[in-house]
């Protein structure tokens, strides 16, 4: 098991390097001049030129990248061009809320998706199945911003049940929970659909297998057959899907955080890109990439825990 984790960590180094190069180049080719941003729109061209020179923006791109990497190795991500705070402190403040949002989203949507998929499989072809599948297709097809807006319109504005602007505080406070409810609900709704569909088809497939017949021949109750021998085996592909969907979820978080003015990494990244704040943009890209790698590693570990055949290789 430890070997698996170490292997995965080593494998993630080239991935991370690729992300760094790509992120750096993208920021270079994006419109907007960092020197101009720093100097302000009214500054005379000489001032901008001086800043350009001081920041080393006239050097070849390779030299700039090496310099960036050198600083990165020392843990220096630079300073935000807009707020002049260190990028580390900006990211540090935004990471907590995003992790909270992810947690609040996954904690309800994964169990709900798996439960819905299992019920749909067990009552295949029934009304329950059709309602769940319709719900899941809607979740897959509706764009996240639309779901957010509909929830805000009804739960937030019309019925005034829940707040929909900003963060109320840490997750363990009542206000924190109230504020995170709508973003977590919106984000979870797009996550449930694929999980429910995958669980349904996977459970249906597993319930046809020979070992399920053996389980029945042992005299197990239908519930035990479905939960212990059906769902347990069916979860293996579902976990893979959850890992893949997590990338989509990070993207969804960018939109969700922006719509709900939620102070997380996603909103920070959007703000940084729109204001051409390139050190902060690169930092946000780095954090999102790290999150993606981490999630995939967790999935690989879960995979090995669920399927003994994976471990022994």
């Amino acid at each position: 098991m430890i070997e698996t984790i170490v292997n995965r960590l080593l494998l993630s180094i080239p991935v991370l390097l690729g992300v760094l190069i790509l992120g750096f180049v993208l920021v270079q080719v994006a419109p907007g001049d960092p020197a101009r941003v720093l100097a302000g729109p009214m500054a005379p061209p000489e001032v901008v030129a001086t800043i350009r020179e001081r920041m080393g923006l006239d050097d070849p791109i390779v030299v700039q990248f090496m310099r960036y990497m050198g600083r990165l190795m020392q843990g220096d991500l630079g300073r935000s061009l807009i707020s002049n705070k260190t990028v580390i402190s900006e990211l540090g403040a935004a990471i907590g809320p995003t992790v909270e949002l992810m947690f609040a989203c996954l904690i309800w949507s994964i169990p709900a998706g798996i439960a819905m998929g299992t019920l749909a499989a067990v009552w295949r072809g029934s009304l329950v199945d059709r309602v769940i599948m319709a719900f899941s297709v809607a979740g897959v097809s509706l764009p996240i911003f639309f779901i957010c807006l509909v929830l805000i319109q009804y739960l937030g504005v019309k019925w005034q049940l829940l707040p929909f602007i900003g963060r109320g505080g840490p997750l363990w406070t009542v206000d924190g929970l109230r504020h995170i409810a709508l973003p977590a609900l919106s984000l979870g709704l797009i996550f449930i659909g694929p999980v429910a569909r995958m669980t349904r088809s996977s459970v249906l497939e597993v319930l046809r297998l020979d070992h399920v017949r053996t389980a029945r021949a042992k005299g197990l109750s239908e519930r035990a057959v479905i939960l212990r021998h059906g769902l347990r085996n069916a979860l293996i592909p579902v976990i893979t899907l959850i890992g893949l969907q997590a990338g989509y979820l990070l993207g969804g978080a960018v939109v969700t955080e922006t719509i709900f003015s939620y102070p997380g990494i996603g909103r920070l990244a959007v703000g940084a890109i729109l204001s051409a704040d390139f050190p902060l943009t690169q930092g946000a890209i780095l954090v999102l990439a790290l999150a993606f790698i981490l999630i995939n590693m967790i999935v690989d570990i879960l995979y090995a825990l669920l399927d003994p055949r994976v471990q022994k290789k």
């Binding site: 020979d210 042992k218 005299g219 197990l220 021998h229 347990r232």
Partner: peptide, 23 residues
């Protein structure tokens, strides 16, 4: 019937490779 299955009546199947749960 469940009490009989696996209790007073046992069954062996054709496919030993797939008749046991791999997990």
């Amino acid at each position: 019937m469940r009490a009989l299955r696996g209790g007073r009546m046992g069954m062996i199947f054709q496919e030993p490779m797939t008749s046991l749960n791999p997990v």
